[in-house]
Amino acid sequence: MNNKVPNNRAWLLVLPMLVLVAFSAIIPLMTVVNYSVQDVLGPNARFFTGTEWFESMLNDSALQAAFLRQISFSLIILAIQIPLGIGIALIMPKRGWQASAVLILITLPLLIPWNVVGSIWQIFTRGDIGLMGWGLRELGVDYNITRNAGDAWVTIVLMDVWHWTPLVAMLCYSGLRSIPEAYYQAARIDRASKWAVFRYIQLPKLTNVLVIAVLLRFMHSFMIYAEPFVLTGGGPGSATTFLSQSLTTMAVGQQDLGPSAAFSLIYFLVILLVSWVFYTTIMHMQKDKHPHGGA
């Protein structure tokens, strides 16, 4: 993996992929840029507006609120899922049929279509027919996600933890499996405590996969749409309206092309900035590991 050969003909191998991705990415993105600086009133009536839409979007208080909600949601689920995922990975069986069985069970939530995840939790939390909603009501808790914003938040966080912790757990599990048995033997000879083994052997080996986990979880939670849409519809009020939903309401529901395009670009730039930070981190880590190269 080190000493790669300089060879510009490699572009030929990349070309088919490039054409396809460009078709799905660049043309639509250019359309968005185009809309973001114009006011489209009809097929033949469009005016150049410059940065007007961008200014109005940045000053829109509803969007600012959605942005803050989005950030806090992403941070909350990261704070829960990452430690929980590590914990589960540590106690998963390493071999035998149990390992396969646990693996398949744990991966299950990842393979359910996102709107069905919303439906599952909608059914599960309803007061009249859902196990959780009914159970909490029997226990005397006043739980109602369509009326109480706090309940809606807790439920959405719970749903996301249920849905995505398996990804973190699986990433950590695969990281743990790559630790050579000799490391553990050395630790035993040194009579290292469980905590020391975790802190000095397992955690350093996990940093690589943890960065991937944080990156994937951050960006997926940042564009969450289908699950809260099905579960709460963004309500009560706008308590659980996240950025993607604000955007689709604006673009598809109200057909506000200019403002929604400007909003799209700002949204995308924020994600781009964060992923750039992660990307450079990953690349630096690879460089530390292989001083002579790395992707």
Partner: peptide, 23 residues
């Protein structure tokens, strides 16, 4: 190129909704 590819992995589908429909 590799970074550009990764940015597509991060692109929120909601951003591309309308242009996709038109394209």
């Amino acid at each position: 190129l590799f970074f550009w590819l990764l940015t597509n992995l991060m692109a929120p589908p909601a951003v591309f909704l309308l242009p996709y429909f038109q394209l």
